[in-house]
Design a protein around this nucleic acid. Sequence first.
RNA 1: GUCCCCAUCGUCUAGAGGCCUAGGACCCUAGCCUUUCACGCUAGUAACGGGGGUUCGAAUCCCCCUGGGGACGCCA
Length: 471
Amino acid sequence: MTTRTRFAPSPTGYLHVGGARTALFCWLQARKEHGVYMLRIEDTDLERSTPESVQAILDGMDWLGLDYDEGPIYQTDRFDRYAEVTQQLLDEGKAYHCYCSKERLDAMREEQMAAGIKPRYDGRCRERTEPVPGVEPVVRFRNPLIGQVAWVDRVRGRISISNEELDDLVIARPDGSPTYNFTVVVDDWDMDISLVIRGDDHINNTPRQINIYEALGATPPEFAHVPMILGEDGARLSKRHGAVSVLQYRDMGYLPEALLNYLVRLGWSHGDQEVFSVEEMIELFSIDEVNRKAAAFDFDKLNWLNQHWMKTLPPEQVAAHLPSHFESQGLDPAQGPSLPDLVRVQAERVETLEEMAAQSRPFYEEFADYDAGAAKKHLRPVAEEPLRAIRAALEAVDDWTPEVLDRAVRDTAEALELGMGKIAQPLRVALMGTGMSPSIDLTLWLVGRQRTLVRIDRALEFIAARAAARG
RNA sequence: GUCCCCAUCGUCUAGAGGCCUAGGACCCUAGCCUUUCACGCUAGUAACGGGGGUUCGAAUCCCCCUGGGGACGCCA
């Protein structure tokens, strides 16, 4: 039997990182077993589902590269099918109409809670034969009263619960619209899903669903409940922890390769290996090896992985993500070095693409002022001679490459009998406005000849002006 | 409250009775490298929640406690 998995988000918000990890696990398991991975949009909650959310989910999946073989299938397109199955259950006496008012149900729930017992529907309409005039009923599933429901979860192992803990759940509202626990079963059954991978907040729904499968005469799929992702403080991940939507990670400058690598290691491991390419994940991942413990999100580690992948992936591939970050920084990539060259130099110096764009500003446009501390320390009269010398040397360079530039700086330092620092630091401040930048040869290379000469002149003028001001 | 689930360094994890004086990674600290900042390299700090069992032997198996999470909707 071929493995068939599905990711089934409800479009009531963005694609959450927790959801993204679930999607990743579904995708990996299907890819590894040469099975089918499908996307299903669970939009039965007409009130809260939005087209924007659907788009956000699709965009998120796309950015991560989690391509699906079937779908997206929308549950709202399948209402006829749900109605059909509901009717079948009704006809077979496996479901019944319930006329109880919400008020009665709410009051009952409160009483039960107060009495210290688990709130459950009391089954008042379970044996009712006559309709209540003027009341549109809901349809409830007739859950078995006795016995146990058990399954062997692919990540949790055996889980069992007594039917006495369960009650008759609503499968269709008064307007006929179906509810979650029912649609999932019908869909997974119709779509021949063999392995349901989902968050462990669904563990409690599973026994109810298994009972429905059985009433339908269907064989339940296998289940794998993966632990949730917690915020850095150990509390359930939510908006207040900063980024929850995968698209936010994209906008913050993370590579999809890095997020995927980070996410796959949350709850799963392969010995001591920390770095996984997507190909390796597919080869090595197994849902059966996933942890049972919830994991806290750690930005430090994500940052480390992001830098790792920025340094490791082909510069062209990394560079392809850069334009949107240049845009958010108000920079024009056309006004400076090629993006792949920039990546080659900057990848080891920053943790995100957004940071890379921000720190590359002087390569693409004029900087306003010198960093006060750096200027005070390095743009002094004593730097005048070295700057003039290096300017002359650089002007004569015809092959503007890191190797040649490095040679030029070294030769100049030697000729003046100065240490590298005495010439590189003033030059660095002249070129970048600050005392921090890539090694001087690479800095020169990226700044380019034109800007280099202009900026050295500017620094020389600055030194002269400051000396004059001092009198 | 009731039911279900979980429990190794601050964090992610290795560990499936002796290989554990508990390993790796991130973070942090120190040193090295060095023209700055980074990168890299080396070293270091740091954990089996508690109590009972089982066993010659327990981080690993069982029970209890404690702590955490989840569910209990005409949300998904």
